[in-house]
């Protein structure tokens, strides 16, 4: 164990605090904003002292946006539901397709396998705007525009390469002898995939799924172009807060807090799978 001198300890504490404040401050500020009215947010100079109010949350959950000029309906809770459906749906599809594919790319080198894997990765390089126009036209022709199915399909451009490449690396890290040993013991390749490869790559699959979920959740441009009002996720739905009578900062802040909550909860939940060691000391290093 390395022991730090008192000075070192103090400096480390200061540095850690500074980093945490730097990264957490925006979130902290948003939470504060979400508990204020537009008037207290916009007063000058800004102050930390205010009467907390849940009116923003109430307005969002009730779907009524009341400004000093007029009152209008918003679909934020609907947007939140859409975000959940789209993100969960596309990550699920990407896992079902991507994990077996990653295993195939990791374990079975066939002619052109590297090229196929790279092509899949290259989907992430393409500028989304370039793809969107032709995609929109095709989707309208085949009736996939403005459907969950169509959006989940397009979201595979985001999720599938990510899951494929991360999980492939984890599969490759499993010593092949472990899988050989299981097969020699008399198990089929499918049993080996299920009982050996999947559990051992578990932390990697969890990490990839979490990342893919965050990317899908944060996607804006695909949903903006391809989804109409009732299929829009929160990222697009937040545009509704920019109203003719001004920008509703308080409600935006409350919406932001509500929309980061699912990802945050998922990240906290997945954390314990992420830190689990991969190889667990099966093979002498």
């Amino acid at each position: 164990m390395h022991h730090y001198s008192p000075l070192e300890r103090v400096l480390r504490g200061v540095a850690l605090t500074a980093i945490v404040i730097f990264f957490m401050f925006p979130i902290f500020w948003i939470v504060l904003m979400s508990l204020q009215t537009n008037e207290t947010i916009l007063r000058s100079p800004p102050s930390m002292v205010f009467e907390p109010t849940f009116s923003n949350y109430a307005a969002i959950i009730a779907g009524r946006l009341d400004s000093n000029v007029a009152s209008m309906g918003i679909e934020f809770m609907n947007n939140l539901m859409n975000s959940i459906i789209l993100s969960v749906g596309s990550v699920t599809v990407a896992l079902i397709l991507g994990v077996p594919a990653a295993y195939a790319f990791a374990r079975h080198k066939f002619r052109g396998s590297e090229d196929i894997a790279f092509t899949l990765l290259s989907f992430r390089f393409a500028p989304p705007l370039l793809v969107l126009l032709p995609l929109t036209m095709y989707f309208q022709q085949i009736g996939l525009a403005d459907t969950y199915l169509g959006l989940i399909w397009v979201y595979q451009l985001i999720c599938l390469p990510l899951i494929l490449w991360i999980v492939r690396g984890y599969f490759e890290d499993i010593p092949q002898d472990i899988e050989h040993a299981y097969r020699i013991a008399g198990h089929s390749w499918f049993a080996t995939f299920r009982k050996i490869a999947l559990p051992l790559a578990g932390p990697g699959i969890a990490a990839a799924a979490l990342l893919a979920f965050i990317f899908a959740w944060n996607n804006f441009i695909f949903a903006l172009v391809l989804a109409s009002a009732d299929k829009q996720p929160v990222t697009v739905g937040a545009l509704a807060f920019v109203t003719a009578s001004g920008i509703q900062y308080g409600q935006i802040a409350a919406a932001v807090v509500l929309s980061i909550t699912p990802t945050l909860a998922l990240a906290l939940y997945a954390q314990r799978y992420l830190v689990e060691g991969l190889s667990l000391g099966a093979v002498k290093g």
């Binding site: 472990i178 050989h180 040993a181 013991a185 008399g186 390749w189 190889s279 099966a282 093979v283």
Partner: peptide
């Protein structure tokens, strides 16, 4: 395939299944 050759093998690096107990490892064949 290996599972149909009906043989036993011990590996130089042991190749134990890390997520199973010693008993499950031994019982797997």
């Amino acid at each position: 395939p290996p599972e149909e050759r009906n043989l036993g093998m011990a590996f130089q690096n042991f190749a134990l299944f890390p997520h199973m107990s010693a008993e499950e490892n031994i019982a797997s064949p």
